[in-house]
Write a protein that binds this DNA or RNA. Structure first.
Lengths: 364, 364
DNA sequence: AAAATTTAGCAACAGCGTTGCGTAATAGGG
DNA sequence: CCCTATTACGCAACGCTGTTGCTAAATTTT
């Protein structure tokens, strides 16, 4: 746990993250933009911009001629000043992406993983894949680390895989630690859905409110972004959204309960009733809205993205029907902007976020 | 919105809140306790303690004799150094409490509200009730404000009642503003369930993790405490937990959907099947755990507290059954420690929290 | 009585954002 | 053409934070 006491270093990191957030969201920006967006004084912004320029994270890119007065210097983010690798570990595949500081996926690769792969299998695949992905040493020198998005359950705080569903050799594996040694890079481990929602939040910037990512891919999971940060829950086990009961007298699920969203959805798809499958998911999404009151819902996952429009239409309709009584209750429903790369890219952005995002204050 | 830029004042407020959190949780504490709990340096703690002592919020209360060395000075919170009034506005009653800085309910009173009461009705009842509750001017001088916990929907950021369920005269009423004028005190307005969970969090201190308060009282609502703060959602509408579907083919609910937790629960209670009613709530609670992974679940509300043991047993059993496969997934289920005063007391604590809790950073 | 140990504050310091003010660069008016 | 108003922006001093170095005080142990 990167424990930061609330000293002046926190201030620096916090305000710097605010400025970088503006830089990432807006293509070009000037000092006055940042002043308005952050509430900092112009002088404070000047200092932060000077620091970021010295570190090469941003650079001036001309001037604006608005009329009277001295023209303002326009700045822009330097996307290739920092990179991160993201890995999406699924049951049979390993997807790797290289993401730059702007949140752009610079390259992407998918490879197979052996059935019932072991930790050494994964480490070797990671090592080989990362080496081919980093062409020049220039990129390697600017690499901040490797993010791994994986199915749970796992322990985010300790970087421990507790026992990935459907994988036999993954009980209490300290993946973060052994991967850091094997790769000689900082590693961040998180649930796939949490990585996914981080990708959306990172790309949208400070305007991104409370949100959920619904992922359908051999199971139904949810990633949450609440109060400006990823929500992982007390044991990094949040997001088992597919195992919420929506039909008290429904079929028995593998989890032991009856009528889970996931089993009801699976029955519908196996019966070929895609419309019903989508409606079931929509019911689940509206349940989330009632509970958490979200501003965004993002749809993702391989199985969902096979019929994106069907799911998008069903969920959008259900959300609007539920909120039709009032005009102030708006929720945007979108498809994941990164498609199949969403999880891997999000994992990479989590690494960047640790360095250049809002620093965490002391957590127990 | 109390917008705080991330300057040194934030540091002061943050670290001071940490120390006060220790003071509130532990009866007696010394400097070394605080050092360990907060991670601050001894010198920093000394400065904070000096400030708090000067303000009369804490005071020395003797010394400890542990063995060798100079004895440590033991401090304690001064409970009656600050007060806050809490109000729980229900459909037909107004409950008022006086809470001290330690979170103790010093006095409590319930009075009726006229059927279909108007804003002026409420203001007069508040004014009269508060005046009788504050006996001495000594208390009045130490009053930090008034917290109002109320059924939604409302807009927490703007202190606006959007249209309380079942009350006709409450559409877009700027209650916070008019109450502040009428009472000449700072007023904080929030949903009842959010106030309730704040009470639990405030009393438990820093060790309180992600949690939910389930409130059954003419409807079923949920209050959430996630990541060290109350979760209100994008439009202060989180917690409509009773309107999540648990039975796809269930009876139609007033909200327009079928098989909501609330309507299924009501049918069970009206049929006299209390066991089933409790089981239905338990299903909803486990749904929450699957989604949010909570460390605590608190049960509250007049209707629930009529049969506390039945609900507690059903929920506890369901939670344990769901987590029985693993030992690391622990959730504590308890009854609200404040009983009927929970909402009003929580509303008061929200006011204290604004002054002496973790300060909020800039939120959009 | 001397040494060891623990507590705790004073003083100097580094680093943050803020304030006051001077300087540079531009457009527009006389 | 020159002067003024306007806008951008950084240097310097400042107030405040927590930190570090050090000294004094109070107690037990030797």
């Amino acid at each position: 746990m990167t424990r930061i006491t609330a000293d002046v270093r926190f201030l620096r990191g916090y305000n710097q993250a605010l400025v970088l957030g503006v830089a990432r969201t807006a293509r070009h920006f000037e000092r006055s933009t940042v002043v308005q967006a952050t509430g900092l004084t112009p002088q404070a912004v000047s200092k932060v911009i000077a620091r970021l320029s010295a570190d090469g994270l941003i650079r001036p890119t001309g001037a604006r001629r608005p009329g009277v007065g001295k023209p303002a210097v326009v700045y822009e983010l330097v996307p290739d000043s920092r990179y991160a690798i993201g890995a999406h570990v699924a049951r049979r595949t390993l997807r790797l992406v290289l993401v730059d500081l702007a949140g752009t996926v610079r390259s992407s690769a998918v490879g197979p993983l052996p059935g019932d792969f072991t930790p050494p299998h994964l480490l070797d695949a990671l090592h080989a894949g990362i080496d081919t992905m980093i062409g020049s040493t220039d990129v390697r020198n600017r690499l901040t680390g490797v993010g791994i998005g994986m199915i749970g359950p796992l322990d985010h705080a300790h970087g421990l895989v507790r026992g990935a569903h459907g994988l036999r050799h993954w009980h209490d594996v300290p993946l973060r630690e052994i991967a850091e040694k094997h790769l000689d890079l900082p590693v961040h481990l998180d649930k796939d859905v949490t990585a996914g929602i981080t990708a959306e939040a990172w790309r949208h910037g400070a305007t991104f409110g409370d949100a959920a990512l619904i992922m359908i891919e051999s199971g139904i999971g949810g990633g949450f972004w609440l109060g400006g940060a990823a929500h992982r829950g007390a044991h990094t086990n949040a997001g088992e959204f597919g195992h919420t009961v929506v039909d008290l007298d429904g079929p028995r699920c593998v989890c032991g309960r009856h009528g889970c969203l996931e089993i009801v959805h699976r029955h519908a798809t196996e019966a070929g009733d895609l419309a019903r499958a989508a409606r079931v998911v929509a019911v689940g999404v509206v349940n989330l809205l009632q509970t958490l009151d979200l501003a965004h819902v993002v749809l993702a996952g391989a199985d969902l993205l096979r019929h994106p429009e069907t799911y998008l239409a069903a969920v959008t309709e259900a959300v609007q029907a539920d909120a039709r009584r009032v005009d102030w209750l708006r929720t945007r429903v979108t498809l994941s902007s990164l498609g199949a790369d969403a999880i891997a890219a999000g994992a990479a952005m989590q690494v960047l976020d640790q360095h250049y995002g809002i620093p965490e204050l002391a957590q127990t």
